[in-house]
Write a protein that binds this DNA or RNA. Sequence first.
DNA 1: ACGGTAATATACCTCTGGGTAAGTTCGCTC
DNA 2: GAGCGAACTTACCCAGAGGTATATTACCGT
Lengths: 229, 229
Amino acid sequence: MEKARAAAARAGTKGVPRRDREEQILAVATEEFGRHGYTGVSMAALARRIGVTKPLLYQYFGSKDGLYTTCLDRVGEPLAAAVRAAMDRPAAEPATPIAVLRAVFTTLEGRPGAWFLLYDQSLPVGSAPYGTARRHRDAIDALAAGGAQDVLRAGNIEDPLDADLLKCLWNTLVGQSVVWWARHPEESAASMGERCARILGTVRFGGSAGGEGEDHRGGGERHRGEREG
Amino acid sequence: MEKARAAAARAGTKGVPRRDREEQILAVATEEFGRHGYTGVSMAALARRIGVTKPLLYQYFGSKDGLYTTCLDRVGEPLAAAVRAAMDRPAAEPATPIAVLRAVFTTLEGRPGAWFLLYDQSLPVGSAPYGTARRHRDAIDALAAGGAQDVLRAGNIEDPLDADLLKCLWNTLVGQSVVWWARHPEESAASMGERCARILGTVRFGGSAGGEGEDHRGGGERHRGEREG
DNA sequence: ACGGTAATATACCTCTGGGTAAGTTCGCTC
DNA sequence: GAGCGAACTTACCCAGAGGTATATTACCGT
């Protein structure tokens, strides 16, 4: 009886301590969620990829939401902290966008796909991960908003909508550079920073200076609630 | 007998011709898919939102994949055509990125969320929509790649990876401006174009000129297959 | 050596979602 | 105004996914 059992069923411990397993699970889960999104990853498939079974995931993280939320916190908090640190310059030199970019790269070294967890479209609206992701996004957005406003004011633009748009634009710029990084694993955080500095230092939109209206001041739009979907 | 029937079961035609229904379905589906992604939209929920039932969707479009693919084609082809037209300038004036942006806005007027269909992460890898989306993305990417290379060459940068990164960056920049537009429906395509021109004409990354390495020539990296996930 | 507990598996439940078969009503034509 | 095809619906099937109860094994301190 034991032979058949041992061959078919290999239940029981594998000698991996909980902390290690959790770490491993979080690493793989972050990668998978980052690649396929929340709804695109099934717990069973995830467990299979890790080499354990579903109940283990539930025992350790309670639910899919719990697992996702944990992954989310593990990336969102360091990220916001890093950005905040990069923008808290001595005030002599204005916080350059490149510095922020470098900080993000450094934080995400080894797990670039993690960025996506914050911007996952497939999160069910109203779910716990949805709220958590939004919280983290908002934290980063608030920082980016300040920077965007500074940049635009330097160009005589006061329209708050312009600033909001620039903020969004910048955020996805950061995001996409991370995405590109994820597809080029041979790059290090440092080399990514240099690459971006090089590129962004070169681009000039629209040839010369502003488009068709220098010294634009917008104000017609009242500030609205900013509530999405 | 007829009263109870009429109240409970309202089967039968509603007098809407097939073409109109299809158009209506495609409009709503595009919006929903754009907002929640492929996996985030269920056929039943979609049908409910339209005011019909599931089998009708299947009768008209065959499958969820078929519906999504149809939506995809309805946005991807005009988009690529518009971008191509915007870049096919008389060669005197180099195709400005802003012109491309305006073309995209014009094409997407009234359905800004449609952009997302091309970049939906939640598409099951290997599915028909996945392939179709990729085809359309590639078409646009090819156009963007040319522009990116031109821009970088103007700044003495030859590294093909830099060009590829800039291409991706630009694409998501376009995408995000569309996303922002979707959240600000009071903006027209024209006003979006102006707004973007204004903003992009103002931003200067890194203060002055290039970052920390003028006249960079990269070549160590061989050109690779470029195959994602 | 041994019992307790931590680490794991099997087997199941339930609900949702893609997809389908067969029936029902309307509008138009002869 | 009878009938035929197009426009719909109700009611169902089945696979897969989230989640759980319970059994099983291995490590570890005594």
